[in-house]
Simulated assay, not measured.
Amino acid sequence: MSDEAVEKAVDDWMDDNRPNKDKDLSEYHRYTYSKFIFIMVCLAITVLVAGYAVSIGEYTISFTDTYVRIWEHITGNVTHDIDDAVIWNMRLPRVIGGILAGAALAVCGVSMQSMLKNPLADTYTTGISSGASLGATLAICAGVTVIGGDYSVVINAFLFSLVPMMMILSVSKMKNASVTTIIMAGIAVMYLFNACNTVLKLWATDEALANVYSWSVGSLTGLSWADVTVMSAFVIPGIIIIQMISGQLNKLMMGDDYAKTLGVNVEAFRLVCLLITSMVAASVVCFTGLIGFIGLVCPHVARMFIGSDNRLLLIASAAFGSALLLTADVIGRVIISPNTLQVGVVTAFIGAPVFLYLIVKNKKTGW
């Protein structure tokens, strides 16, 4: 569009006497409200599903009573000791952990897709998940741990999930390293770690294999308040920081050259984004195991309603990620009750068709 065309469009918009002014304003407000409606709907679903998730189990608590018991605990007026113990000590950590995990993985997906300008980027394509899997497999199958104790698997998974990040950061510092180079480095690391995992499993006992499988499919089972506290210490500050730099992410999405003209130190900024995103994703994966497709699906669904402005997209993706992960967890708990289908399996059933759709779509069009 020429400069004259742009100036004419601006003049037409500023003209108070133009015939379609009220209609244009109405459409703009409707478009703006739809974004906030999407976010509010996601938050409402999260609250409702959380209440239902707390109510189901061997010890039944009614849907409405869950909110009453939670309010009583918060206000210090506990009237049902058993209900309070079941909700706060056994079920609520799982729900809060699911909310944090869903929001974190979705935000990490938005961040990676924006800074790498690739619609298929998430914790899997950058090797973070495969690194965590290798750390957990080493601890379970070979007994190789950094520290002993109850958190040996968690610590191993966390530390090894940072190894791909360090390798990608090293590659990104190379002269003239492109975004494609960074993505391919992540994929190469993923295949290498997956091969190491396979070798370890060949030598593992049946019990160790069962434990590795249970961890690798992803689950919210067994989360405690201690786990949620540690997760929160990384997830909440990480999401806040990513939200604060969302304007810079918008500039980076327009291309490295364009971002540089706006004063962005592209290389340094991308390193910081990779570091923060990797730390947030690693803090989730080491506790929940490998929960796939949340970081891939949620940003794209949210983008359909919100658009590509990261300032709102990050918030919307976090809200949708929490709602989706909690819903998937509830589906896994009730669909084959009294047995449980791990949440990672449910999200894979949801995410795989979307992933295939994205591949087919991007074969013909850019992102």
Rank of each mutant, 00 (worst) to 15 (best):
T64S: 12
I37C: 05
A44Y: 08
T64V: 15
T32Q: 12
V86R: 00
W71K: 10
V95F: 00
W13P: 03
G57N: 01
N17F: 09
N20Y: 12
V68N: 02
E27A: 13
D84G: 03
N77W: 09
A85P: 02
R30L: 14
A5N: 15
K35Q: 12
S55L: 02
F36W: 13
A9W: 09
V49C: 02
R30W: 10
T66V: 06
G51T: 14
D24V: 15
F63L: 09
A85C: 08
K21P: 03
A5G: 08
T66M: 02
D11Y: 12
T75K: 05
A9F: 10
A9E: 11
Y67T: 04
F63I: 13
E7D: 12
D24E: 15
E4W: 08
A5T: 11
W13E: 13
H80N: 12
I96Q: 00
I87F: 01
L25G: 12
V47T: 14
I61T: 02
S55N: 04
R94S: 04
A5K: 15
R91C: 01
I56L: 07
H29R: 15
D3E: 14
I70R: 00
E7Q: 13
A53G: 06
Y67C: 03
D22G: 10
V86L: 03
Y28R: 14
T32H: 11
F63Y: 11
N20L: 13
S55F: 01
T64R: 05
M40F: 13
N89W: 05
R18Y: 11
R30E: 08
D81L: 13
Y31H: 12
T79D: 07
M90I: 12
I96W: 00
S2T: 10
Y31D: 15
I70W: 00
I45V: 09
F38M: 06
A50Y: 02
V47P: 02
I61C: 01
W71E: 09
Y67G: 04
Y59T: 03
Y28G: 10
L92Q: 01
I45A: 08
I56D: 05
D84C: 06
F63C: 06
D84L: 03
D24A: 12
H29T: 10
Y67V: 04
I74V: 07
N89T: 14
S34Y: 13
E4V: 14
A5I: 10
I96E: 00
V10I: 14
A5W: 14
R30K: 10
Y67R: 03
S34A: 13
D11L: 10
A44V: 12
M40C: 10
T66W: 02
H73F: 05
G76K: 02
